[in-house]
Each structure stands twice: as C-alpha cells, then as structure tokens.
C-alpha cells in the first residue's frame, strides 16, 4: 500500500518576499513568530495539565495527551491566546497607534520647551 514513508515537501516554491529594508529583519520576524508559537504550545500544555490536575487531583500522563477542552475551556483558552498576542506584539500595534511618532515628538518637544522656560 502506498504512503508508508510519505515525506511532504518543507519548502514553498518561489522567492520569499522581503518587506523590511534589511533581509535579516525578515528572518528575525520569522524566528520570533516561530518562538512565539512554541511558547504558546507550551502554555497550552501547561494549561491542560493544570486543568487536569485540578479536576482529578492526580496527574495522569495519558489523560494529559488525550485532553480535550470543553467549549468553555476552549473559550477561555482562545481569550488567553488573544491576550498573549496583544502582549507579544505590543510594539507592533503601538507603532500604528494614534500617538504616532510624529505626535510623540511634538509631546517631547513641548515638554522640553516647558522645562526650559
């Protein structure tokens, strides 16, 4: 039967787009996102463990692997991941926030003026 040792390709054909001025920034972004993902995976595992410990009073490794969140668990976990996104990418959003760098400069300048008066 076919498919015993199927290996799917790892790479996408075509050139990866570069968005930032320096290519290393694009690479760093990928690494940071991968790291963020693995941290989230770890968090979900710990979360599952906590909930199971809480429910059963004992840690059963098999039960942990089979853990299925209830819809309520899932809603809490999804909300927690969204919060995690906000924390992780705070700087990404701050850059776009209403206090853009121009405004920030103006604020700084006005403070400096006040202080020197």
């Amino acid at each position: 039967m076919s498919g015993e040792d199927i290996q799917l390709p790892r790479q996408t054909r075509g050139r990866r787009p570069q968005f930032f001025e320096n290519p290393e920034s694009d690479v760093l972004m990928s690494v940071v996102l991968a790291m963020a993902g693995e941290l989230s995976v770890l968090y979900d595992r710990v979360d599952a463990m906590q909930r199971l410990l809480d429910r059963q009073g004992v840690l059963d490794a098999d039960a942990l692997e089979q853990f299925q969140p209830t819809p309520e668990d899932e809603a809490e976990r999804a909300a927690r991941r969204q919060e995690y996104m906000q924390r992780l990418f705070r700087v990404v959003r701050a850059e776009a926030a209403v206090f853009s760098s121009k405004d920030a400069e103006e604020v700084l300048e006005s403070v400096e003026r006040e202080l020197s008066e």
């Binding site: 993902g37 693995e38 989230s40 995976v41 979900d44 595992r45 999804a78 991941r81 996104m85």
Partner: peptide
C-alpha cells in the same frame, strides 16, 4: 496547540 496558535495569530 500549534494549529490553535496559528489561527489566533
């Protein structure tokens, strides 16, 4: 969890 993260992302 990895798939959930990507969806959240």
């Amino acid at each position: 969890a990895r798939q959930d993260f990507v969806s959240s992302l």
